[in-house]
Design a protein around this nucleic acid. Structure first.
Lengths: 338, 338
DNA sequence: TTGTACGCGTTATCAA
DNA sequence: TTGATAACGCGTACAA
């Protein structure tokens, strides 16, 4: 037997007096198997502490048990939420989660991803925004024979390969909330051009205004990069307008924090002088002052569903693809004082 | 040849007219090999786009190429920094990073970790605080024949299996900075009991006070859980003291944000009425108002070094084990107004 | 410097 | 319902 080594299927077979194949059947829960032999083999497995070698299985079956997560760190909280969501699904399976952060501005991005998938021979991969918006990368994964699920904020793919939040509707509801609070002069800070999420949120913002019979004054609109500094710059622009907004929607929380700083540096009070709503509900949102009203999307649930679509492709289409976000009402948005 | 399939080492061998073994030598960069044959084989490999099957290699070599990261989400920013650091080291190797978030309060924690390591047959694992402080878990990893590197804030292990920040010294320097700013009544918010990092930071705080000939008044000291709410509660305690502190050191940023909220709710201004210093330099630190003076430890570099120790055990001991942290001076700590 | 034969631990084929 | 035997793709004695 194995001396100090890990027991193999041969050890199990010999000790329980059956063939390798029979043990294999037990492991794989084959239906056609005598109850007695099954019990017997299971006992030996437990006694020996036998754990099937996944590398060997992978080799024999021509597929392995690795799910890849490829992203360009949109935001730490989100990436971690995704990882936890995926683990929720695969925890009691043989699958494992392999992460691969990349730099989307790298000229070797595609090669980097290709190499990762080929080398590890991934079973499936999950792409996070903004990478998930690039059809060329999606095609690359497929060419490599790797199932793919994309996470995004719009219909980037068909139901079997997508989990998405309805950003457009969520933002429109956030605007409705500002309108309900009495605001009519509402500023807007957009996300970076070329980002699908930025686009969706902008559309949602305009939807919200339109529903209230309002329009956007370009003097109180700006475009940012989703980063703090750009939010601050945008805030400065909006606040220096001839007629500043009484409320602002920022396309993400980090920029909202920047807007807050811009307001503070001008000696303005938030929310008294201006209400702010963000998007993402990052950790920062609840920790800044005032606590930020923001849109929370169910990252973990979405990621968990995405993983299910990956490891059970058969039932992928029957899993939901679209998820609703919640408006988290905190102190940064208050009634307009007329 | 392979029709639609991935080329194997056999294809390469046949086409280049050499034996499998020779191709294997090329792949593994064996020194004893004719330059001519090497070139020839490399050309075929490139032409075919041959990528060695890692599962097969793993099986044949009796070891695989997976590094595990086990953690209990101490903080999203940190975990992501660690992942990026590990990737910095393994990006151009055959290794991949498998992540495994766990719940340290789960009764099945040890079994969960055991199963993860055994099932995936990990080459090595990295343990993050506070899990890294548990010797039983470290022993478990070793029993499973898995090399281990622990990340922490103190000498948890020998140089080959450790990367650590010198929290104690860093905090002592932070206190020195407050003293330099003229503060003599300095409050303290500790981290949770049983956390090595909390202990180190506390010692550093006391060191700092002692160096200035000061002592800690229990009336302006409190213990938190590293979470925001606990910081807020601690802040309330300190501020309701008969003689409140003019400056506070918080054992992490999240609690510092909580202290800020407590101050705001009492109508106090920070830093005018009270200076605050935190620890970690999370994303939030720079985004709250006022921007938080805090201690930044070189997570990414540490993680990168840790990965090097894992995949190159031979040179592990020669890599540094201790890393210096920087005090990031921002607006939340200002001179004491006398 | 290169090649032959076999083993790694598992699944699949096909017959019993 | 079970078992003998051949794959899976690669590394390594050992020999040439």
């Amino acid at each position: 037997m194995a001396e100090g080594q890990k027991p193999t299927i041969n050890d199990v077979a010999r000790i329980s007096g059956v063939s390798k194949k029979t043990v294999s059947r037990v492991i794989n829960k084959s239906p056609l198997l005598g109850e007695a032999t099954r019990k017997k083999v299971e006992a030996v497995i437990a006694e020996l502490g036998f754990v099937p070698n996944l590398q060997a299985r992978a080799l024999a079956m021509g597929r392995n048990f690795l799910i890849g997560l490829i992203h360009d760190n949109p935001n730490a909280q989100m990436v971690l939420g995704v990882q936890e969501g995926i683990l929720d699904t695969i925890r009691d399976t043989e699958f494992a989660l392999v992460v691969h952060p990349v730099n989307r501005h790298s000229p070797t991005l595609a090669d980097d991803i290709r190499r990762f998938i080929e080398q590890q021979r991934l079973y499936g991969v999950m792409l996070l925004p903004p990478l998930s918006e690039r059809d060329d990368l999606a095609e690359l994964c497929r060419d490599l024979g790797c199932t793919l699920v994309r996470m995004g904020s719009a219909r980037l793919d068909d139901d079997e390969h997508l989990v998405a939040s309805n950003d457009r509707q969520a933002v429109s509801e956030a605007v409705a909330w500002l309108v309900e609070l009495g605001h009519t002069r509402i500023g807007f800070v957009a996300g970076p051009e070329g980002f699908r999420s930025a686009n969706e949120r902008e559309q949602g913002f305009l939807d919200g205004l339109a529903a209230a019979g309002l329009t956007l004054d370009p003097a109180i609109a700006a475009r940012g990069t989703y980063r703090f500094e750009s939010g601050k710059a945008a805030g400065e622009k909006l606040l220096s307008a001839a007629e500043p907004p009484t409320a602002v929607f920022s396309s993400n929380d980090e920029m909202a924090a920047g807007i807050l700083h811009a307001a503070r540096e001008r000696g303005l009070n938030v929310p008294e002088d201006m209400s702010i709503i963000g998007f993402d509900d990052t950790a920062t949102a609840a920790h800044i002052w005032p606590p930020l009203t923001t849109v929370r999307w169910p990252i973990r649930t979405m990621a968990s569903t995405a993983a299910a679509k990956l490891i059970r492709p058969a039932s992928a289409a029957s899993e939901p693809s679209f998820f609703l976000s919640d408006l988290i009402r905190r102190a940064s948005a208050v009634p307009h004082r007329s």
